[in-house]
Simulated scan of single mutants.
Amino acid sequence: MRLARDLGPQHLGRRVVVRRALADGSAGDVLGELVAWGPDRLAVRARDGRDVLVEHGAVLAGKPVPPPPARRGAPEPDPGRVRADLALERAAAQGWPPLEREELGGWLLRASAGFTGRGNAVLPLGDPGLPLDAALERVVAWYAARGLVPRFQVPLPAARGLDADLLARGWQAYHPTLVLTAATADVLAQVPDPGVAVEAAGRPAEGWLAAYHYRGAPLPPAARAVLEGGEQRAFLQVPDPDGGPPLGIARVAVADGWAGLTAVEVAERARGRGLARALLRAGCAWGAARGASGTYLQVAEDNGPALALYAGAGFAVHHRYRYLRPGDPVPVAP
């Protein structure tokens, strides 16, 4: 359901204001982050961390609003939420393992010959065990030895303090990304079987690789090794009945009870047929068969069509992350 041009599921993760009718006949505003958009209601995460549910029928108006100004002395995020965010980030890192990794205390340094941001960034899951500036020197040297620019993938709000410290040292942020989650069983119940044949394989076929467009260019040599990483993963594709390249592809990986769906792509000639939902359902079914009770997706904040698609399947915002690197940002696929 869409309320108006001003507000819709494509605004997941955005700060919004929603005016709603109250039981006494008056109206009240809810201000915060739009974290869910279901068939009957939406959810706005208020400043205090509460998720306020609003029935669609009670909404009088709504629109995105600018982010709040930076505040000094902002309250620390809830410890339980921090633990949940970092646990999911740890599972996602296992689902997309790098070619090379090293631990620096609670920081995970990852390198994959430059293929994807996730495979070439520090994931801060705890304290590095060193003073910050000394730890950053180690990071810079580690990536320089591999011919890579140092970068962090910073989960928010869990690592908000590190994010502020890096910004204060001249690092720049780019590629804000939402981590969406849903109960796997709920997705399977909400997304009907479209009757589309989806094939699953343990390794990507040449057609699958040809259909995966990374930065609009052919895949680099390291791509296959990265894609085939992880203990439990499958490569999904919707075959072309005419024998051409796959009409749609996706990758699914399972770790720590989570199924992660990545590399979802539908050929331009096949869009509008529900193939993305078919791949989503197939990925959830594959994950459920291997014990994944939850499913996650990582979606760029500005990808409105994808956010609307996944919101319609029952996904909501779990947390977010963004990349930081020294100096001027150089875009890297999330």
Rank of each mutant, 00 (worst) to 15 (best):
A4G: 15
P9Y: 01
H11N: 14
R15T: 09
D24M: 04
G28N: 12
G32S: 11
E33G: 03
L34Y: 05
A36M: 08
G38I: 00
P39R: 13
A43N: 01
A46D: 12
R47E: 15
R50Y: 03
R50V: 10
V54W: 02
V54T: 09
E55D: 14
L60F: 00
L60M: 12
A61S: 15
G80E: 15
R81M: 09
R81V: 13
A92G: 09
W96Q: 12
E100S: 13
E100F: 00
R101I: 00
T116S: 13
G126L: 07
P131R: 13
E137A: 15
V140G: 01
W142A: 08
A144M: 02
A145F: 00
R146Q: 05
G147H: 02
L148C: 02
V154R: 09
P155G: 12
R160V: 10
G170T: 04
Q172K: 14
P176D: 08
T177I: 08
L178R: 05
V179F: 03
A185E: 15
V191I: 05
P192Q: 07
D193M: 10
P194N: 07
E199W: 01
G207V: 10
W208D: 06
W208E: 05
L209E: 12
L209G: 01
L209H: 02
Y212G: 02
R215K: 12
A217M: 08
L219P: 10
A225N: 06
L227V: 02
L227N: 02
G229P: 08
P241W: 05
P241F: 10
G243P: 10
G257H: 09
A267I: 01
A270T: 07
G272R: 06
G274F: 08
A278K: 09
A278I: 11
L279E: 08
R281L: 13
A282D: 06
G287M: 11
A289H: 00
L297P: 00
Q298G: 10
V299F: 02
L307N: 06
A308R: 15
G312F: 00
G314I: 05
F315I: 09
H319T: 03
R322G: 03
G327V: 04
D328S: 11
V330H: 05
